[in-house]
Design a protein around this nucleic acid. Structure first.
Lengths: 118, 118
DNA sequence: AAAACCTTGACACGGCCGTGGTAAGGTCAC
DNA sequence: GTGACCTTACCACGGCCGTGTCAAGGTTTT
């Protein structure tokens, strides 16, 4: 069975080794460990890392966003509270709303892209 | 019918006027506007602002988190993609995971509280 | 018409995020 | 047993978040 070490995994997924550790810390992709503590990425993890990358760029979301979604999914108390708040009266002027928070959420990415010189 | 102006609303909700504008920009609580453009907070908005505040402190989450939850709730494509990713193989070592991301998500707040001298 | 309040826009600032790099020290392969 | 690779821990840095404050200009009230 082939399990890639962190640098190999980095090469095949496009993440940097540094980011792989960061992603693990965020609780999103945690590879098995060897007896000595080496990270061992199996096929499942590699796939997960690739799809994670697509997910982030396709929807312009961040690791923190996914981490929060994870928390939402696993903490039903939190989910109920948040969904409940959102479901309550949806704040009067609905049009302004949609327009505004959309810009709010997108702005950072536009700035990032601009800064990245894309 | 009584509708409070931004400073009055700030007083009764505990938010600062600046934050009220920020919360609106984040698309979370958007008050009606007078003909001249003055924000007019009704009972519903005031209640919403108070519960929002409780929500944030009770679960140690941020405005951005709620904004993202809102996006998740209103963009089914996004929700399906994220939930799908999370639902897929839940990353091997489940224990490390839970432990780790929990710390990851909580650390910032601990630091915030510490910094705030609480 | 002046005082008091509102609006948007901008500057500021500490702190965290995403990222890279490096150091000190274990592990693996040959 | 030496070189290549891994691990954790820490410093650095640009950019955004949450927040305050101030300026320039309308509105409301008296």
């Amino acid at each position: 069975m082939e399990a890639l070490t962190i640098n190999e995994a980095a090469s095949t997924t496009g993440w940097s080794p540094r980011m792989l550790r960061y992603v693990e810390q965020a609780g999103l992709v945690a590879p098995e460990r060897s007896a000595a503590g080496y990270r061992l990425y199996g096929a499942a993890e590699l796939q997960r890392l690739r799809t994670l990358k697509e997910l982030l760029s396709e929807f312009e979301i961040t690791l923190s966003d996914v981490a929060f979604a994870r928390r939402l999914a696993s903490d039903s108390g939190l989910r109920r509270a948040v969904d409940g708040w959102l479901a309550a009266r949806p704040a009067r002027p609905e049009h302004v709303q949609a327009e505004d928070w959309l810009r709010f959420e997108q702005e950072k990415h536009e700035r990032l892209l601009a800064a990245a010189g894309a």
